[in-house]
């Protein structure tokens, strides 16, 4: 056996193991730039033509078990999305803001797993949000799979978990997001 690839693969295995538990991004909580608010909810409801009146009709919502307007539950992720810097967004590969430091995902890119494919999104909603609440999110890499053979090439599934909390630090929702970092094998895209 050739020692060099073994060293490289041992280094890669170490680097991958070290990712688990690491934050994605700066490590600081992402604080929503704006509290939960009716204009953004109305915009969302209109975009998806979701006519559920608990999102936009205060009188109706007051008569439901929610007792007032609530935010659409799957809007959870929207509140903490970064305010984008539009200039240069294409040059940054779609990153909404210039990145601070290196992404933990560069470990994969450097080992040839340059492809990225979103695979799963899983939400647990503890409670619905009300207007005026400010949401923060913290994201940690939860797990990295062994190398798997997939139809688009060998790769690793990386799962990160985002915990969304309210002003008092209470968890209001949890999201697991899984991507495949893969070595493209020339499949037609």
């Amino acid at each position: 056996m050739n020692a060099e690839p073994n060293d490289a693969s041992a280094n890669f295995a170490h680097a991958v193991a070290a990712l688990v538990g690491r934050p994605v991004g700066s490590g600081k909580a992402s604080v929503a730039p704006d509290p939960v608010n009716q204009p953004m909810i109305r915009h969302w409801a209109a975009a998806f033509e979701d006519t559920n009146p608990v999102y936009t009709d205060p009188e109706f919502a007051a008569g439901t078990r929610f007792g007032g307007i609530v935010a659409p539950p799957l809007m959870l992720q929207t509140w903490t999305m970064a305010t984008p810097m539009i200039t240069g967004i294409a040059e940054r590969g779609g990153a909404p803001v210039p990145s601070e430091g290196t992404s933990p995902m560069t470990v994969f890119d450097e080992a040839g797993f340059v492809g990225t494919l979103a695979s799963n999104s899983e939400f647990e909603i503890m409670r619905y949000l009300r207007i005026g609440e400010t949401i923060s999110a913290t994201t940690i890499i939860e797990s990295v799979s062994e190398q798997k053979k997939t139809r688009i090439g060998p790769g690793h599934f990386v799962t990160w978990v985002t915990t969304y909390v309210d002003d008092s630090g209470e968890t209001v929702g949890i999201q697991r997001f899984r991507i495949l970092k893969f070595k493209p094998e020339g499949v037609p895209s």
Binding site: L74, M75, E122, Y128
Partner: peptide, 25 residues
């Protein structure tokens, strides 16, 4: 995920609460 939530509550009604949604893309 937005359309999934609309699909669920269009059926179940405004008292429904989406508690979990787990999708494969």
């Amino acid at each position: 995920t937005a359309y999934c939530s609309r699909f669920l509550t269009d059926w179940a009604g405004p008292e429904a609460m989406v508690r979990k949604l787990s999708i494969r893309l």
